[in-house]
Nucleic acid binder design. Sequence first.
DNA 1: ACACCCGGGACTCCCCGTTTAT
DNA 2: ATAAACGGGGAGTCCCGGGTGT
Lengths: 211, 211, 211, 211
Amino acid sequence: MVQQARALATRETILAAAGVVFSNSTYSKATLLDIITEAGVTQGALYFHFDGKHQLACEVIKRQHQAAVTLSTGPFSRHASGIEGVVRLTAALTEQLISDPIVRGGLRLTTESPELFPDFVSRPFLGWIDACEGYVSRAIEEGDVACDVDTAEIARFIVASYTGAQVVSYGLTEWADIYESLEQTWRFILRGILVAERHGEIDHLAAFVHG
Amino acid sequence: MVQQARALATRETILAAAGVVFSNSTYSKATLLDIITEAGVTQGALYFHFDGKHQLACEVIKRQHQAAVTLSTGPFSRHASGIEGVVRLTAALTEQLISDPIVRGGLRLTTESPELFPDFVSRPFLGWIDACEGYVSRAIEEGDVACDVDTAEIARFIVASYTGAQVVSYGLTEWADIYESLEQTWRFILRGILVAERHGEIDHLAAFVHG
Amino acid sequence: MVQQARALATRETILAAAGVVFSNSTYSKATLLDIITEAGVTQGALYFHFDGKHQLACEVIKRQHQAAVTLSTGPFSRHASGIEGVVRLTAALTEQLISDPIVRGGLRLTTESPELFPDFVSRPFLGWIDACEGYVSRAIEEGDVACDVDTAEIARFIVASYTGAQVVSYGLTEWADIYESLEQTWRFILRGILVAERHGEIDHLAAFVHG
Amino acid sequence: MVQQARALATRETILAAAGVVFSNSTYSKATLLDIITEAGVTQGALYFHFDGKHQLACEVIKRQHQAAVTLSTGPFSRHASGIEGVVRLTAALTEQLISDPIVRGGLRLTTESPELFPDFVSRPFLGWIDACEGYVSRAIEEGDVACDVDTAEIARFIVASYTGAQVVSYGLTEWADIYESLEQTWRFILRGILVAERHGEIDHLAAFVHG
DNA sequence: ACACCCGGGACTCCCCGTTTAT
DNA sequence: ATAAACGGGGAGTCCCGGGTGT
C-alpha cells in the first residue's frame, strides 16, 4: 500500500508539472524533457504512469474540466443572492485560471489545438454559460435583473466579457490588474442589466470579485 | 528595376501563405514546408526574402498591425456619430479577423506565443483601445454617453467585450454566429453606457454591426 | 526488434515514392520535395534511411534489377516450350514496365543518365539477353528454331526488338497499344527464326503475349 | 553584310555547342555555362541570339527535325532497290545520330522531357515510319517482299528494331558495335520479310549498312 | 563582358517521442 | 526506474543557375 501511495504521488507530481509546462508553451513546443525536469522524475517514470505525451495532455484537460465543474456547481448557490453568486463565480474561475497551472494548461491545450483533443471539445464555455444562467435566473426572481432580457443571452454576454477581460488583461499587464479589470467589467455589466433601483449597489456588488 | 516587381510579388505570396498557415496552426506546429507548399515557392525563395521562420512570423504580425491601424484611423470618423463609429469599427475589425488570414494569423501568433514576440504583444489592444476612446469622447460630447464615466475605462471594456465575444463565438460555433453575437454584445454595452434618453435607439445602433 | 518493422515500412514507402517520381521526371528534375510529398514523410525520415538523392536512385535501380531477375529466372521454364517461354517472358517484362513505377523509374534513370550510374547501365540488357538465350537454346533443341543461327545473336535481336517496340509504342501512343505492338513484333521475329514447318503456329505463339 | 556573316557564324557555333551539351546531359542538368564554355562565347552573345535556355533547346530540336527530313526524303530513292534504300536509310539515320550532336541532342530533349516541348511532339518516329513505308512498298512492287504483309506494320517493325538496336548497343558498348549490330538486325529482319527466293542475298543486302 | 538579382534545391544538424535493454 | 538507442521531424545553410542590368 505504501508503494501505491508513492506511485500516486509521483503521478500527481507529473500531472502538476505537465500543467505548468503546457500552460507556458504550446502542445508541440512543450517537450517531455521540460516536464520531467519540472517534475524531477525520469522518462521511465513518466512512461510508467502515462502512455505518452498525448495521453498526458488529455489527463491535464480532464483535471481542468473537473475543477471547472467543481466551481460551477459550487458553494455560492446557498448563502447569497444570484447576482453575488455570479460575480463570485467569475472571480473564482479567474482565481483558478491564475493560480492553477493545470486549469490554465488544460484550457490552453483545448483552445489552441482542438483538433488534437476532439473528445474534449465540449468546450468549457458551455459549462460556464450554464452555470451563469442559473444565477441570472435567480437574480431575475429576486428582482435584481429586469425580466425582459433572455437569461441565456445575459449569461453568454457575462462569460464573453469576463473572458475578454482576462485576455486583454493578459495582453496588457500579464494579469497584474486582472481583479481590478474584472471589477470594472462587472460595473459596466451591472449598469446594463440591473434594474434601475439597484444601481446604487453596483460598486458594492462588483467588489465581490475580491472575495 | 523591373525585376524587383517579381521579387515583391513573391514576397507577398509568401507572406499571404504564411498568414494562412499560421492562422490554422500553432507557431511551432506550422512548418516551413507547409508555407512553401501553400505559397508554391521553394525554401530558397523564402530564405531570400526572410531570415527564417521567426522573422517571417514577425512580418505577418506587422501586417496585421498595419491592417488594424488602417481601420482604426479609418473612414468612420467623419460622417457619423461617435457611437455609430465605434460600432462600425468593431464590426470592421471583426470582418478583418474573419476574412483576412494575415490578420488572423498575426493575432494567433501574438496571443498564443507572446513570449516569442514580446515586442508586439500589447500593441493591438492598445491601438484598439485608443481608437475606441476617440469615438467614446465624441459620443460624450454629442451627449450620447453619460459624462460621469472614464473614457479609457469604457474603451477598454468595449475592446474586452468584443474580444470576448469573438473568442466565445469561435469556441461555440467557429464564428458562424459572430455578427449576431457582436450585435447582442453591443446591445448590452449600450444599455450600460448610453444616457437614458437614448435607450430607445439601442437596437438601431447595434444593427450597425451589419454594415 | 519489433521497432524495425516501422522503419522497414517507412523505407519501402520512400522507395515506392521515389519510383513514382523518378519514373515521371528526369533525375535532375525530380526533387526530394516531390519524393517526400509523394511518400508523406519528411526529409528527416528520408535521410535516415538513405544517404541522399543519388543513393536513393541507386536503390530504386537495384529494385528494378531484382524484379527483372525474379522474372527472368521465373516460372516459364518448366511447363512450356522454349518459344512460348520467351514470348511470355517479354510480355511479363512489359507488364512490369507498365505497372511497376519502381521498374519504370529504375529503367529511366539508367537509360537517361547512365553517367550517373555507371555500375548499373548494362546490367538489365545483359540479364534479359541471358534469360532469352536460355529459352532460345531450348527452342533449338526442341526443333522450333533453325540450328544455324547463333543463340546469343538471336537473343540480342529479341531484346533489341521488344525494347524498340516499347520505345516506339511510348513515343506514339504512350503505351496504349503496347501489347498489340509486341504481338506484331513477335510475328515478325518468329517469321525470321522459326523453322519453316512451324510457321503455321506463328499467330498462336505470338498470342502468348496476352498471357 | 560581313557583320551579319559573323553573327550567323556565332549563332551556329552556339547551336552546335548546345547540341553537344544537350546530347550529353538532361535539359535541367545542362547549364548555360556549359554551353557558352563549349562555344567559347559569352552569356551576352548567347542572349543576343536566343531568348534563353528553352528557346535555344527548341532551335536544336528544329534542326534535328530538318536533318531527319532531309535524310528521309533523301538520295536513296533513285538509284537503288527499295530494300537497299531502306537499309541505307537506317544506316544514314544511325550515322546522323552518332556523328551529329544536334540530332542526338534534339532527340534526347524531346524524348526525355516532352512536357517542355509540347509543340514538337510530332515525334520523329512517325516521319521515320513514313519514310520506311515508302521503301517497303517499292520492295513489294519489286517482288522482294511478300505481298501478304501490311507495309505500315513492316515499317513500324523496322523502325522499332533499329531503334532498339541503337538503345541496346548504347547500353552495352556505347555504340562501339552499332554498325555490326545494325547489320545483324537487318539479317533477322530480312529473314522475316524477304520472299524465299531472295534469302540468298540477305548477307549482301545487310552489308549496305556500311555504306 | 560582367556582376548582381532572385530563386531552386540538396544536404546538415539538432531535437524529440518512444522503445528496449539492463 | 535508468540510460541508451531508435526512428523521424524540421529549421537553417549552402551553393548553383537563369536571367537582367550596366
